[in-house]
Amino acid sequence: MNTLLDTLGAGFLWLMELIGLNADLMQRYGLRFIDGVGVTLELVLISVFLGALLALPLAVARVEGGKFLARAAFTYSYFFRGTPLLAQTFLIYYGAGQFREQLTDIGLWWFFRDAFNCAVFTFTLNTAAYQAEILRGGIQTLPAGQMEAALSMGLSRYLAYRKVILPQAIAVGLRPLGNELVLMIKSSAIASVITVYDLMGVTRLAFSRSYDMEVYLWAAVLYLVMVEVVRRVWDVLERRLNRHLTVSR
């Protein structure tokens, strides 16, 4: 990660010099912007990974959970997909402070008093809802015979999902999952409003001290670079994982 950030930082500084931006401003805040990129990537990658772990049982519950579990999973997805991420972030960050004594009693205040942890927690809950719906759609597009064939071979329902259903569902939903990752990168800017010094947090700090709108151009360029890198990596990943589908055509 450090090597990647160093390379990205060198390229960023070179690009800013090439297009003739404020050299003094770049010297003062350039490295802070690179640190902000690191915080943004850490925030997004942790949230998306944990969200994926939570999305798997939610997706299966939506399909196989019966009346109660299916409705509970639907309610979860409905709430987090239907309300603004900004409101969810405020609800977790400022709401946790209303329950400081209770959280202290159960040993969780150390977690919720940190703005970065609150952002990770909120983003995890949010992206899990979207990823669960993507996986649910992938599962439901598969023929029912897939599960029947797995069960007829003696696999348990758990193993059938693990070895047969979920790998295919993930392959089907790979493009939407990539789009969700891109959206999370852009939505991560919300973390700056609760004092997380991610890329947008550093940008706001730099602007408050310099009053130079140029810093927002830097931020836009860096977000664009991150999104483009993810897009290209995801294209390669999708071609490799779905190459059998390409050949079959």
Rank of each mutant, 00 (worst) to 15 (best):
G66D: 10
V193G: 04
F111V: 11
L5Y: 10
A115H: 10
A149Q: 08
T40A: 08
A61N: 03
I139T: 07
R71W: 14
W218Q: 10
Y93M: 01
W14E: 13
F79N: 06
A169E: 02
L199V: 12
L125R: 10
R62D: 01
G9S: 09
G137D: 05
W110I: 08
R232S: 04
F79V: 15
A220R: 04
V230P: 00
L166R: 01
V230Q: 04
A149N: 11
V225G: 05
L217E: 00
G145W: 10
Y161D: 08
A132R: 04
R162A: 11
L205A: 11
E42H: 07
G154R: 08
A160T: 02
N2P: 12
T7C: 06
G82P: 13
R28K: 15
L8H: 02
L43H: 06
T124Q: 04
G173A: 05
I190N: 05
N179D: 13
D198A: 10
L8E: 01
F123D: 01
V164I: 15
A144L: 11
W234Y: 12
L4P: 02
W14T: 11
T203G: 15
R204T: 12
V225K: 09
F12R: 01
V230F: 07
K67I: 14
F90Q: 06
V39K: 08
F74W: 14
Y130S: 04
Y216N: 04
V164L: 12
L174Y: 00
L245P: 10
W234N: 11
A219M: 12
F74R: 13
V221R: 01
T203Q: 12
E228K: 14
A87L: 13
A96F: 02
F112I: 10
S47M: 04
A171S: 14
I34Q: 07
